[in-house]
């Protein structure tokens, strides 16, 4: 397995989070107070210039949570640690479709009365979020509101 990460014995490390999105991840996860959490905001990064980082001790993410975090922190690096060993590490990829997470910026969209459904495509280095109801397209980096 790979190198040891920080002081985490067991848990998850989410690195290369776009600046400003770490707190969204924690809001989404709604962790119980028993889990120690380390947050790094506005850290220097070779890959991103500035990044955020989240470490959560004694906590493991479900596939559904990883899928949602892929939207909240596109292309972040996810690591799972067990007994100081990195047992899984990969760059998050945007899911094809996610329901209920993204709030459609179109205020006339019917999803505000139900639940949202967005599909994603990468176009020229940008992730385009497509509302499956009102058919509007958005640059995901400009989407600011999520159901957290």
């Amino acid at each position: 397995m790979e190198k040891k990460i920080g002081m985490i014995a067991n848990g998850v490390n989410i690195d290369h989070i776009p600046q400003g999105n770490a707190l969204n991840i924690l809001r989404y996860l709604r962790l119980e107070r028993k889990y120690p959490v380390g947050i790094g905001l506005n850290l220097p990064s070779e890959r991103m210039v500035i990044k955020d980082l989240v470490k959560i001790e004694n906590y493991h993410l479900t596939d559904e949570q990883i899928k949602a975090i892929s939207v909240l922190a596109p292309h972040a690096t996810f690591s799972e640690i067990v007994n100081y060993e990195v047992v899984r590490k990969f760059q998050l990829t945007i899911p094809e479709i996610i329901e209920g997470l993204v709030i459609c910026p179109n205020h006339r969209c019917v999803s505000h009365q139900y639940r949202s459904k967005f599909s994603f495509t990468d176009v020229s280095g940008k992730t385009i979020a497509h509302c499956c109801y009102c058919d509007h397209n958005y640059d995901l980096s400009e989407v600011r509101e999520f159901n957290l």
Binding site: N106, R108, C109, V110, Y114, C132, Y133, C134, D135, H136
Partner: peptide
């Protein structure tokens, strides 16, 4: 509302014809 007909087609199992959504 925009997208209302698409939503209707998802929650109903009868044909839905969009006569204008927003």
């Amino acid at each position: 509302n925009d997208g209302a007909a698409r939503l209707a087609s998802e929650v109903m199992n009868i044909p839905v014809i969009n006569a204008g959504d927003g």
